[in-house]
Amino acid sequence: MSGNILELKSVSKSYGSGRTQIEAVRDVNLEVRRGEIVLIMGPSGSGKTTMLSMAGGLLAPTSGEIIMGGQPLGDLDSRGISELRLRHVGFVFQAFNLLAGLSALENVALVMNLAGRRDSSVERDSKKLLARLGLERRLGHVPADLSGGEKQRVALARALANDPPLILADEPTGNLDSKSGREVMDMLAGLAREENKAVVIVTHDPRIVDIADRVFWLEDGQLSPAKPQSIV
């Protein structure tokens, strides 16, 4: 075993066909290990979301291979991939994507339920997780009654609910003001280091560069190690 949580091996993705074909991601190679935070930056339309969708098994690459926890995704059917997503990956989105009808606590408990956990430990663990993110007084609030930063912290708790080794985040500060964006990123970084998780964050927010161990630059679908001057 390579010890990598996530590997992208010469992964490409093109949308459409013929004259309207777009090559959104071109021949990308990336390895992510436990305990490291990787940042992928790049201008709008450079293929960041496309790349992250493929890394999370939500989108199949046109060519190349994605290996998650030693398991090539190409060998799995859609059921196997969602099963792997449930236990292996936690997602954080720009738009939070909490379920509007459920409280903070229920949003977190739900993904534990999906993983087959039904006992009383679900509520206990959800509460514990939300408390670690400073939300012990927001357990019963529905998303509409939470601030943006609080919503993103609930989403972070949900991403961590099944204790996955890998966290994938797409523009997690995109809908937040700089102060709460900073707060959420510090919490994510802190938890990831404490729990030795692998984190990939896609962003064009240069203010969060300092939490990363490695920074990559994606432009026109091509990934390269970031040059310091391109960050600022």
Binding site: G56, L58, R79, S82, E83, L84, R85, L86, R87, V89, F91, N97, L99, A100, V111, L114, A115, R158
Partner: peptide, 16 residues
């Protein structure tokens, strides 16, 4: 619609 998409993304199976 979107919430079903979210459930799918986080790993809910078709059966769920």
């Amino acid at each position: 619609y979107r919430e079903y998409g979210v459930l799918k993304a986080v790993g809910a199976g078709s059966f769920d």
